[in-house]
């Protein structure tokens, strides 16, 4: 009985008001909400806050307690101190890593509209692509880094497009595979052998072993600096 009375209390408490979708910032009904003059945006408004709070006044979903019991009973996995967060990905046969801070997203190339740029013979600059409505430059890291193609492929055949954010704008480049985001200890970075004369070594801060792979950790500052130089 107690539970029932609790439920009726809830349903009476919320005649679900979604004014923010009608006369607030997410709606366009007239007249506008008079409170908007004062609070500017609905998220500053008490009514909106209360709407969110009411969501938490629902009864517990099934299995909720059991799931959390297991989570809370487990030892806490703490972020290891002094690690570097990297995104590990593959271009052709090379495994590369870049700081997670500059990583933005992965896009399925099928959903991208790409366009080549006429009168541009630069192999690094592939063209332009439409990323969420913004035109971004699409570049080839394999050309810049001098990664040899196992099989010569057209860039549209690449499986994934990786988007990175830098101070100097966004870059999009094709990659063949993404392993994911991992934490690595900086002390496992090894120096690049000095005898390696490839252009790739210039952009590599260090090499580390990830499982059975050798991964080159890229110097993103230098990489994007030379990309800018390259496409100008």
């Amino acid at each position: 009985m107690k539970k029932l009375s609790g439920q009726s209390e809830i349903s009476s408490r919320q005649p679900v008001e979604n004014c923010w979708k009608r006369i607030g910032v997410w709606g366009n009904e007239e007249p506008r909400c008079p409170k908007l003059d004062e609070v500017i945006h609905c998220r500053n408004c008490d009514v909106f806050t209360q709407g969110g709070r009411n969501l938490l006044e629902r009864n517990l979903p099934e299995e909720y307690k059991n799931e959390w019991t297991e989570v809370m009973a487990a030892k806490k996995e703490e972020a290891l101190p002094g690690t570097v967060s990297v995104v590990i990905f593959r271009i052709e046969d090379e495994w590369l890593a870049i700081r997670t801070q500059v990583f933005a997203e992965i896009i399925d190339p099928d959903s991208l509209r790409g366009h080549s740029l006429p009168h541009r013979k630069n192999p690094v600059l592939i063209g332009v692509v439409n990323v969420h409505g913004d035109i971004q430059l699409c570049v080839s890291l394999s050309e810049l880094l001098g990664i040899e193609n196992a099989v010569k492929k057209d860039w549209k055949d690449q499986k994934l497009m990786m988007v990175v954010n830098t101070d100097a704008g966004r870059w999009v480049f094709p990659v063949n595979e993404i392993l994911g985001i991992y934490h690595v200890y900086p002390h496992i970075f090894q120096n690049v052998p000095v005898t390696v004369a490839k252009a790739q070594s210039t952009y590599t801060k260090g090499i580390f072993n990830w499982k059975d792979k050798h991964v080159a950790f890229l110097d993103d500052d230098l990489l994007f600096y030379s990309l800018i130089r390259n496409v100008q």
């Binding site: 107690k2 609790g6 709070r53 969501l55 938490l56 006044e57 629902r58 009864n59 517990l60 979903p61 909720y64």
Partner: peptide, 10 residues
């Protein structure tokens, strides 16, 4: 003298 209601916010 009554148990807490079992809600998400509890």
């Amino acid at each position: 003298g009554r148990a807490c209601e079992m809600r998400l916010s509890t």
